[in-house]
Design a protein around this nucleic acid. Structure first.
Lengths: 115, 115
DNA sequence: CTAAACGTCAACCATTTGGTTGAATATCAC
DNA sequence: GTGATATTCAACCAAATGGTTGACGTTTAG
């Protein structure tokens, strides 16, 4: 499980893999069942699941002859945080941000009352 | 500007491109200036900027002989929403989700009264 | 006008990716 | 044990990716 932003975003860039994640959102599934809705081969799905596992987005546990796939939202959350940090800064825009620092700071100064 | 989740996530999967986005967060920049901190060639950076533009993550405007690069957070926001939806469902966990459906549905059943 | 700065384009290369098929490995069911 | 089920592995293939270099068009500066 590399869990790097590189591998997480790369894993998310494929529509088949996003569809798999959406399926696992509803319930844990065996590899064969994951493959069922898709037209591609089982081996191809197995590879996709490997990519998702390497990215830390899912985990796989073998019980008997069936390997269960389970969503692991932690990796997703990390990437989500990275993106949200952009979303927040975006609203700011540097010039505006500097004005913000100058004008809106009194709000933050509640426990440091004005002189 | 394709703005699909495919292209947005693929664009975000490269560390050079994420670094470029982080730079553009602070200010709009010319292509040459974007390239400056990196060891790779200008042509390579030009390609990365093309990928980011195709994904809708940045826009480029040519003024005189210099092409300005600007962050476009809308594409990022779309992908962020997709990820957050996972983050939310994750907290639910199917069993709990079904209980939720059973107990909280009255809200949604206003115009579809129970039999 | 000439030269430098800005940036892209085209051709090339190595590696990775997403898919295939067929054989191989476990495990379960009888 | 035999056979069906579940999954992976290995070899292969086409296409995409990320990088290089060198030539090319624009625009600005002197």
């Amino acid at each position: 499980m590399m869990m790097s932003l590189d591998t997480v975003f790369a894993a998310l860039s494929d529509p088949t893999r996003r569809a798999i994640l959406a399926m696992l959102l509803e319930d844990d599934m065996a590899v064969t069942d994951v493959a069922h809705p898709f037209t591609m081969s089982l081996a191809a799905i197995s590879k996709h699941l490997h990519v998702l596992t390497a990215a830390g987005l899912i985990s796989q546990e073998k019980r008997g002859r069936v390997k269960w796939c389970k969503l692991e939202p932690d990796a997703l959350r990390e990437a989500s945080i990275w993106m949200q940090s952009f979303g927040q800064f975006e609203a700011v825009n540097l010039d505006a941000f500097e004005r913000f620092l100058a004008t809106e700071l009194p709000e933050a100064a509640i426990d440091a009352p004005s002189d």
